[in-house]
């Protein structure tokens, strides 16, 4: 973030925007250096305004801000990529919106994380080349969990910390992962995690995104993991993170 007097620059991605007054917009950005911020874009609703498509979700731009009396005022925007073509493919467009929705929910204002910024760019680019959105949505949320510092423990017990000698079957969202047989009875929210789900979860957590894309998931396996990951994220973030399947369902009709 470069700051010169009351002006400063940062690269950001548009998470959402709402109309404000006659011609303005309040835009929520996730910026590289400053994290999630709300800024006011004056005149952004006028035809031929100076921001053009830079304020459409999920455009990425180099922004220039001015510190006014209230929230920062957006003074310039130079587009890096606005992913215009995704509007033509419903699933791709909904997936991009899902990334933004999850980021908006998981991060508090001015909580910056450059790794997640890069990750969003990576998934946005990948979504234009690969249409396996089920895996991408799972992997993205797991990456998000990692960056937020809540990655579940799968190689050792989430309660006592001892490494597993045999494959455990207890899963606890509140404790943060798999539970050994000894600690099984002491956990209130414990539930059974089938071994195949445990293996798939471990793969999704450890494999690179490219390797994950080769994982073959049956519909019921995806539905199980989709729910599991969303429940886990929702519990640790404290805000509802909708499952990808539910998020997509409403828009799938025409695809």
């Amino acid at each position: 973030m470069m700051k010169t007097g009351r002006y400063w620059k940062d690269q950001g991605i548009v998470l959402k925007s709402i109309n404000f007054g006659e011609l303005d917009r309040i835009v929520t950005l996730f910026t590289r250096k400053k994290g999630k911020i709300n800024v006011i874009a004056k005149g952004a609703r006028k035809v031929g305004n100076r921001f053009g498509p830079a304020l459409d979700c999920p455009a990425i731009s180099n922004f220039m801000f001015y510190d006014g009396r209230g929230m920062p005022v957006l003074s310039q925007a130079e587009i890096v990529d606005c992913y215009r073509e995704i509007g033509k493919k419903t699933n791709q467009w909904v997936f991009a919106n899902y990334l933004l929705f999850a980021i908006d929910r998981c991060y508090e204002p001015e909580e910056s994380d450059e790794r997640i910024f890069e990750t969003v760019l990576f998934y946005l680019d990948l979504s234009t080349k690969c249409e396996n959105f089920y895996i991408l949505a799972l992997k993205f949320r797991i990456d998000l969990i990692r960056f937020l510092g809540f990655l579940p423990r799968i190689r050792s017990c989430a309660v006592c910390g001892k490494p597993f000698k045999k494959i455990p079957q207890g899963w606890s969202v509140a404790s943060g992962g798999m539970i050994c047989e000894k600690c099984f009875s002491s956990i209130a929210d414990i539930h059974y995690l089938p071994p195949d789900m445990m293996t798939l979860l471990a793969k999704l957590m450890t494999f690179s995104c490219a390797s994950c894309l080769s994982i073959q998931l049956r519909e019921n396996q995806f539905a199980y993991l989709d729910r599991l990951v969303s429940e886990y994220l929702t519990y640790h973030v404290g805000k509802k993170i909708t499952e990808w399947k539910i998020f997509l369902e409403r828009f799938q009709e025409a695809s």
């Binding site: 498509p53 467009w93 025409a254």
Partner: peptide, 9 residues
Amino acid sequence: LDGEATAYF
């Protein structure tokens, strides 16, 4: 983008 996505939908 939302307007265009709606149009293509």
